[in-house]
Design a protein around this nucleic acid. Structure first.
Length: 353
DNA sequence: AAGACGTGGTG
DNA sequence: TCACCAAGTCT
Protein backbone atom coordinates (compact mmCIF):
# COMPACT_ATOMS: atom_id res chain seq x y z
CA UNK A 1 0.00 0.00 0.00
CA UNK A 2 1.31 3.43 -0.93
CA UNK A 3 1.99 6.05 1.75
CA UNK A 4 -0.81 8.24 0.40
CA UNK A 5 -3.27 5.36 0.72
CA UNK A 6 -2.22 4.71 4.31
CA UNK A 7 -2.73 8.38 5.15
CA UNK A 8 -6.12 8.36 3.43
CA UNK A 9 -7.25 5.29 5.37
CA UNK A 10 -6.17 6.94 8.59
CA UNK A 11 -7.98 10.18 7.82
CA UNK A 12 -11.17 8.30 6.90
CA UNK A 13 -11.02 6.53 10.24
CA UNK A 14 -10.45 9.82 12.04
CA UNK A 15 -13.41 11.51 10.35
CA UNK A 16 -15.66 8.87 11.89
CA UNK A 17 -13.95 8.14 15.20
CA UNK A 18 -12.35 11.43 16.25
CA UNK A 19 -12.81 11.90 19.97
CA UNK A 20 -14.77 14.90 21.17
CA UNK A 21 -12.27 16.92 23.18
CA UNK A 22 -12.82 20.38 24.67
CA UNK A 23 -9.90 21.93 22.78
CA UNK A 24 -10.63 20.24 19.48
CA UNK A 25 -12.63 21.41 16.48
CA UNK A 26 -14.13 18.20 15.15
CA UNK A 27 -13.97 17.18 11.47
CA UNK A 28 -17.56 18.27 10.87
CA UNK A 29 -17.20 21.72 12.44
CA UNK A 30 -13.92 22.13 10.61
CA UNK A 31 -15.58 21.30 7.30
CA UNK A 32 -18.11 24.01 8.13
CA UNK A 33 -15.26 26.50 8.38
CA UNK A 34 -14.56 26.51 12.11
CA UNK A 35 -10.92 27.02 13.04
CA UNK A 36 -9.26 25.98 16.29
CA UNK A 37 -8.27 28.76 18.69
CA UNK A 38 -4.44 28.87 18.78
CA UNK A 39 -4.59 29.70 22.50
CA UNK A 40 -6.66 26.58 23.19
CA UNK A 41 -4.38 24.45 21.01
CA UNK A 42 -1.27 25.73 22.74
CA UNK A 43 -2.70 25.37 26.25
CA UNK A 44 -3.95 21.85 25.61
CA UNK A 45 -0.72 20.72 23.97
CA UNK A 46 1.36 21.95 26.90
CA UNK A 47 -0.97 20.25 29.36
CA UNK A 48 -0.84 17.04 27.32
CA UNK A 49 2.96 16.82 27.47
CA UNK A 50 3.55 13.46 29.20
CA UNK A 51 0.02 13.65 30.57
CA UNK A 52 -3.14 11.75 29.71
CA UNK A 53 -6.28 13.24 28.17
CA UNK A 54 -8.28 12.12 31.22
CA UNK A 55 -6.03 14.09 33.57
CA UNK A 56 -6.04 17.20 31.37
CA UNK A 57 -9.77 17.69 30.70
CA UNK A 58 -10.77 19.43 33.94
CA UNK A 59 -7.58 21.48 34.16
CA UNK A 60 -8.15 22.74 30.63
CA UNK A 61 -11.70 23.74 31.48
CA UNK A 62 -10.67 25.56 34.65
CA UNK A 63 -7.83 27.43 32.91
CA UNK A 64 -9.93 28.57 29.95
CA UNK A 65 -12.76 29.63 32.24
CA UNK A 66 -10.48 31.66 34.47
CA UNK A 67 -8.21 32.95 31.68
CA UNK A 68 -10.13 32.93 28.37
CA UNK A 69 -7.28 34.22 26.21
CA UNK A 70 -3.54 34.63 26.18
CA UNK A 71 -3.72 38.28 27.31
CA UNK A 72 -5.72 37.31 30.39
CA UNK A 73 -3.27 34.56 31.24
CA UNK A 74 -0.30 36.88 30.71
CA UNK A 75 -1.81 39.26 33.25
CA UNK A 76 -2.35 36.56 35.88
CA UNK A 77 -0.34 36.40 39.09
CA UNK A 78 2.29 33.68 39.27
CA UNK A 79 0.83 32.12 42.42
CA UNK A 80 -2.63 31.91 40.88
CA UNK A 81 -1.36 29.99 37.86
CA UNK A 82 0.83 27.67 39.95
CA UNK A 83 -2.12 26.96 42.24
CA UNK A 84 -4.40 26.19 39.31
CA UNK A 85 -1.76 23.83 37.89
CA UNK A 86 -1.27 22.04 41.22
CA UNK A 87 -1.75 18.29 40.89
CA UNK A 88 -1.02 18.14 37.16
CA UNK A 89 2.72 17.67 37.62
CA UNK A 90 5.83 18.81 35.74
CA UNK A 91 5.51 22.28 37.20
CA UNK A 92 8.14 23.79 34.91
CA UNK A 93 5.35 23.64 32.35
CA UNK A 94 3.29 26.11 34.39
CA UNK A 95 6.23 28.46 34.88
CA UNK A 96 7.00 28.35 31.16
CA UNK A 97 3.31 28.71 30.33
CA UNK A 98 3.29 32.11 31.98
CA UNK A 99 6.61 33.11 30.40
CA UNK A 100 5.26 32.09 27.02
CA UNK A 101 1.96 33.95 27.42
CA UNK A 102 3.83 37.10 28.44
CA UNK A 103 6.24 36.72 25.50
CA UNK A 104 3.34 36.34 23.07
CA UNK A 105 1.80 39.54 24.42
CA UNK A 106 5.06 41.50 24.68
CA UNK A 107 6.83 40.32 21.52
CA UNK A 108 4.06 39.14 19.16
CA UNK A 109 1.23 41.59 19.75
CA UNK A 110 -0.84 39.02 21.62
CA UNK A 111 -1.01 36.57 18.71
CA UNK A 112 0.83 33.29 18.50
CA UNK A 113 3.41 33.09 15.72
CA UNK A 114 2.34 30.67 12.98
CA UNK A 115 5.58 28.97 11.97
CA UNK A 116 7.18 26.02 13.63
CA UNK A 117 10.51 27.77 14.17
CA UNK A 118 8.97 30.88 15.72
CA UNK A 119 6.78 28.75 17.97
CA UNK A 120 9.71 26.63 19.10
CA UNK A 121 11.57 29.78 20.17
CA UNK A 122 8.95 30.34 22.89
CA UNK A 123 9.36 29.00 26.45
CA UNK A 124 7.99 25.49 27.02
CA UNK A 125 7.47 24.83 23.31
CA UNK A 126 9.79 22.13 21.97
CA UNK A 127 9.89 20.20 18.68
CA UNK A 128 6.68 18.29 19.34
CA UNK A 129 4.52 21.17 20.57
CA UNK A 130 5.78 23.58 17.90
CA UNK A 131 4.87 21.12 15.15
CA UNK A 132 1.52 20.33 16.75
CA UNK A 133 0.47 23.99 17.03
CA UNK A 134 1.70 24.81 13.52
CA UNK A 135 -0.19 21.86 12.04
CA UNK A 136 -3.39 21.96 14.11
CA UNK A 137 -3.89 25.71 14.54
CA UNK A 138 -2.26 27.01 11.36
CA UNK A 139 -2.58 24.19 8.79
CA UNK A 140 1.14 23.92 8.24
CA UNK A 141 2.28 20.54 6.90
CA UNK A 142 4.62 19.85 9.84
CA UNK A 143 5.37 16.35 11.06
CA UNK A 144 4.25 15.81 14.64
CA UNK A 145 6.15 13.14 16.56
CA UNK A 146 5.15 12.13 20.06
CA UNK A 147 5.14 8.79 21.84
CA UNK A 148 2.03 7.68 19.98
CA UNK A 149 3.50 8.49 16.58
CA UNK A 150 6.72 6.67 17.46
CA UNK A 151 4.74 3.58 18.45
CA UNK A 152 2.48 3.62 15.39
CA UNK A 153 5.43 4.07 13.02
CA UNK A 154 7.52 1.43 14.77
CA UNK A 155 4.69 -1.06 14.26
CA UNK A 156 3.50 0.02 10.83
CA UNK A 157 7.04 -0.36 9.46
CA UNK A 158 8.29 -3.01 11.92
CA UNK A 159 11.20 -0.93 13.19
CA UNK A 160 13.07 -3.15 15.65
CA UNK A 161 15.78 -0.69 16.60
CA UNK A 162 15.16 0.38 20.21
CA UNK A 163 14.30 3.94 21.26
CA UNK A 164 15.74 6.49 21.55
CA UNK A 165 18.14 5.36 18.80
CA UNK A 166 15.24 4.79 16.43
CA UNK A 167 13.76 8.26 16.89
CA UNK A 168 15.25 9.85 13.73
CA UNK A 169 14.16 6.92 11.58
CA UNK A 170 10.65 6.99 13.05
CA UNK A 171 10.47 10.73 12.45
CA UNK A 172 11.43 10.20 8.80
CA UNK A 173 8.74 7.55 8.42
CA UNK A 174 6.16 9.85 10.00
CA UNK A 175 7.21 12.61 7.59
CA UNK A 176 6.53 10.31 4.63
CA UNK A 177 2.93 9.97 5.76
CA UNK A 178 2.32 13.64 6.53
CA UNK A 179 -0.09 15.01 3.90
CA UNK A 180 -0.17 18.54 2.51
CA UNK A 181 -3.90 18.66 3.08
CA UNK A 182 -5.31 18.68 6.61
CA UNK A 183 -1.95 18.04 8.32
CA UNK A 184 -3.47 18.93 11.69
CA UNK A 185 -6.20 16.33 11.35
CA UNK A 186 -3.61 13.80 10.21
CA UNK A 187 -1.44 14.48 13.27
CA UNK A 188 -4.39 14.12 15.61
CA UNK A 189 -5.48 10.98 13.77
CA UNK A 190 -2.14 9.24 14.36
CA UNK A 191 -2.17 10.26 18.01
CA UNK A 192 -5.78 9.17 18.49
CA UNK A 193 -4.97 5.85 16.85
CA UNK A 194 -2.04 5.39 19.20
CA UNK A 195 -4.12 6.33 22.22
CA UNK A 196 -7.15 4.15 21.47
CA UNK A 197 -6.20 1.30 19.07
CA UNK A 198 -2.44 1.03 18.69
CA UNK A 199 -1.95 1.05 22.46
CA UNK A 200 1.30 0.09 24.21
CA UNK A 201 -0.12 -3.19 25.52
CA UNK A 202 -2.77 -5.34 23.86
CA UNK A 203 -3.14 -3.29 20.68
CA UNK A 204 -6.56 -3.77 19.07
CA UNK A 205 -5.18 -4.85 15.70
CA UNK A 206 -8.50 -6.50 14.80
CA UNK A 207 -10.25 -3.16 14.44
CA UNK A 208 -7.27 -1.08 13.30
CA UNK A 209 -7.78 0.88 10.07
CA UNK A 210 -4.09 0.24 9.28
CA UNK A 211 -4.08 -3.52 9.90
CA UNK A 212 -3.60 -4.28 6.19
CA UNK A 213 -0.34 -2.36 5.69
CA UNK A 214 1.00 -2.98 9.23
CA UNK A 215 4.28 -4.89 9.00
CA UNK A 216 4.47 -5.67 12.73
CA UNK A 217 0.97 -7.15 12.76
CA UNK A 218 1.92 -9.19 9.71
CA UNK A 219 4.87 -10.64 11.65
CA UNK A 220 2.94 -11.00 14.89
CA UNK A 221 5.27 -8.67 16.82
CA UNK A 222 3.10 -5.56 17.15
CA UNK A 223 2.77 -5.74 20.93
CA UNK A 224 6.56 -5.98 21.35
CA UNK A 225 7.23 -2.70 19.53
CA UNK A 226 8.61 -0.16 19.93
CA UNK A 227 11.60 -1.63 21.74
CA UNK A 228 13.13 0.50 24.45
CA UNK A 229 16.42 0.54 26.29
CA UNK A 230 16.25 -0.64 29.89
CA UNK A 231 15.67 2.02 32.52
CA UNK A 232 17.66 2.65 35.63
CA UNK A 233 16.21 1.51 38.97
CA UNK A 234 14.66 4.19 41.18
CA UNK A 235 16.34 4.84 44.56
CA UNK A 236 14.38 5.65 47.72
CA UNK A 237 14.90 8.99 49.45
CA UNK A 238 13.92 9.99 52.97
CA UNK A 239 12.79 13.33 54.32
CA UNK A 240 10.94 15.22 57.05
CA UNK A 241 8.10 17.70 56.67
CA UNK A 242 6.64 20.02 59.30
CA UNK A 243 2.98 20.89 59.30
CA UNK A 244 2.43 23.70 61.74
CA UNK A 245 -0.63 25.76 62.51
CA UNK A 246 -0.79 28.99 64.47
CA UNK A 247 -3.42 29.71 67.13
CA UNK A 248 -5.32 31.95 64.68
CA UNK A 249 -5.55 29.04 62.23
CA UNK A 250 -2.86 30.19 59.78
CA UNK A 251 -0.66 27.46 58.24
CA UNK A 252 3.14 27.64 58.05
CA UNK A 253 4.03 27.10 54.39
CA UNK A 254 6.85 28.03 52.06
CA UNK A 255 7.12 28.94 48.40
CA UNK A 256 9.65 26.56 46.86
CA UNK A 257 12.44 28.06 44.75
CA UNK A 258 11.70 28.42 41.03
CA UNK A 259 14.22 25.80 39.97
CA UNK A 260 14.25 22.11 40.73
CA UNK A 261 11.66 19.69 42.00
CA UNK A 262 8.19 21.22 42.57
CA UNK A 263 9.74 24.58 41.67
CA UNK A 264 7.51 27.57 42.32
CA UNK A 265 4.93 25.52 44.25
CA UNK A 266 3.71 25.82 47.83
CA UNK A 267 4.99 23.21 50.27
CA UNK A 268 5.52 22.35 53.90
CA UNK A 269 8.93 23.33 55.28
CA UNK A 270 11.21 20.37 55.81
CA UNK A 271 14.55 18.67 55.47
CA UNK A 272 16.46 17.79 52.35
CA UNK A 273 15.37 14.56 50.68
CA UNK A 274 18.30 12.16 50.66
CA UNK A 275 19.03 8.44 50.43
CA UNK A 276 20.53 8.51 53.92
CA UNK A 277 18.50 9.69 56.90
CA UNK A 278 18.51 13.50 56.66
CA UNK A 279 18.88 15.78 59.67
CA UNK A 280 15.65 16.98 61.21
CA UNK A 281 15.04 20.61 60.27
CA UNK A 282 12.03 22.16 62.02
CA UNK A 283 11.34 25.68 60.68
CA UNK A 284 10.67 27.03 64.17
CA UNK A 285 11.19 25.74 67.69
CA UNK A 286 7.99 24.13 68.93
CA UNK A 287 6.55 20.97 70.42
CA UNK A 288 6.73 19.01 67.15
CA UNK A 289 5.09 15.62 67.45
CA UNK A 290 5.85 12.83 64.97
CA UNK A 291 2.98 11.25 63.06
CA UNK A 292 2.62 7.49 62.94
CA UNK A 293 2.12 7.40 59.22
CA UNK A 294 4.56 8.64 56.60
CA UNK A 295 3.85 9.84 53.09
CA UNK A 296 4.93 7.46 50.37
CA UNK A 297 5.17 9.05 46.97
CA UNK A 298 6.91 8.15 43.74
CA UNK A 299 8.48 10.77 41.49
CA UNK A 300 9.91 10.17 38.05
CA UNK A 301 13.35 9.27 39.29
CA UNK A 302 13.01 8.30 42.97
CA UNK A 303 10.66 7.01 45.65
CA UNK A 304 10.07 9.25 48.65
CA UNK A 305 9.24 8.36 52.24
CA UNK A 306 8.34 11.55 54.07
CA UNK A 307 8.15 11.57 57.88
CA UNK A 308 5.60 14.06 59.19
CA UNK A 309 5.67 16.28 62.26
CA UNK A 310 2.82 18.44 63.52
CA UNK A 311 2.66 21.25 66.06
CA UNK A 312 0.44 23.99 67.34
CA UNK A 313 2.51 27.17 67.03
CA UNK A 314 2.32 30.15 69.38
CA UNK A 315 0.76 33.28 67.94
CA UNK A 316 3.87 35.42 68.18
CA UNK A 317 6.49 32.98 66.86
CA UNK A 318 8.85 33.94 64.04
CA UNK A 319 9.87 30.95 61.88
CA UNK A 320 13.29 30.80 60.26
CA UNK A 321 11.64 29.67 57.03
CA UNK A 322 8.29 30.04 55.33
CA UNK A 323 5.31 32.29 56.02
CA UNK A 324 1.92 32.01 57.63
CA UNK A 325 -0.96 31.63 55.20
CA UNK A 326 -4.31 32.62 56.77
CA UNK A 327 -6.81 29.79 56.94
CA UNK A 328 -9.19 31.68 54.65
CA UNK A 329 -6.54 31.79 51.92
CA UNK A 330 -5.39 28.19 52.22
CA UNK A 331 -6.72 25.73 49.66
CA UNK A 332 -5.24 22.21 49.86
CA UNK A 333 -5.89 21.94 46.11
CA UNK A 334 -3.17 24.56 45.54
CA UNK A 335 -0.57 22.09 46.86
CA UNK A 336 1.37 19.68 44.68
CA UNK A 337 0.17 16.14 45.25
CA UNK A 338 2.95 15.00 47.57
CA UNK A 339 2.31 18.01 49.84
CA UNK A 340 -1.44 17.48 49.73
CA UNK A 341 -0.89 13.86 50.78
CA UNK A 342 1.08 15.12 53.77
CA UNK A 343 -1.71 17.53 54.66
CA UNK A 344 -4.35 14.80 54.39
CA UNK A 345 -2.38 12.49 56.70
CA UNK A 346 -1.76 15.26 59.24
CA UNK A 347 -5.41 16.23 59.27
CA UNK A 348 -6.59 12.67 59.80
CA UNK A 349 -3.76 11.43 61.99
CA UNK A 350 -3.60 14.21 64.53
CA UNK A 351 -5.06 17.49 65.66
CA UNK A 352 -3.16 19.58 63.19
CA UNK A 353 -6.42 21.21 62.33
C1' DA B 1 23.69 14.70 26.02
C1' DA B 2 21.99 11.93 29.76
C1' DG B 3 19.36 13.16 33.60
C1' DA B 4 15.82 16.02 35.94
C1' DC B 5 11.26 16.73 36.07
C1' DG B 6 4.93 14.67 38.59
C1' DT B 7 1.14 12.26 38.62
C1' DG B 8 -2.55 8.87 38.05
C1' DG B 9 -4.05 4.85 35.60
C1' DT B 10 -3.12 0.10 34.28
C1' DG B 11 -1.75 -4.80 33.87
C1' DT C 1 2.63 -4.26 45.02
C1' DC C 2 5.05 -2.35 41.33
C1' DA C 3 6.93 -1.37 36.93
C1' DC C 4 5.45 0.71 33.07
C1' DC C 5 3.34 4.25 30.66
C1' DA C 6 1.26 9.19 28.82
C1' DA C 7 0.04 14.42 23.08
C1' DG C 8 8.14 16.34 26.01
C1' DT C 9 11.17 20.14 27.44
C1' DC C 10 15.12 21.98 29.48
C1' DT C 11 19.82 21.93 30.86
Amino acid sequence: MRDADVSAALLSWYDIHARDLPWRVGPRARAAGARPDPYAVWLSEVMLQQTTVAAVRDYFRRFTTRWPDVAALAAAEDGAVMGEWAGLGYYARARNLLKCARAVVADHGGRFPTTRDALQALPGIGPYTAAAIAAIAFDRPETVVDGNVERVMARLFAVETPLPTAKPALTALAARLTPQERPGCHAQAVMDLGATICTPKNPACGICPLRAPCAARDRGIAATLPRKLAKKPRPTRLGHAYIGRRADGAWLLERRPDTGLLGGMLGWPGSEWAETEPCAAPPVAADWRPLDQEVRHTFTHFHLRLALHVAALPQGCTPARGFFLPAADFRPADLPTVMRKAFDLARCGHGAD
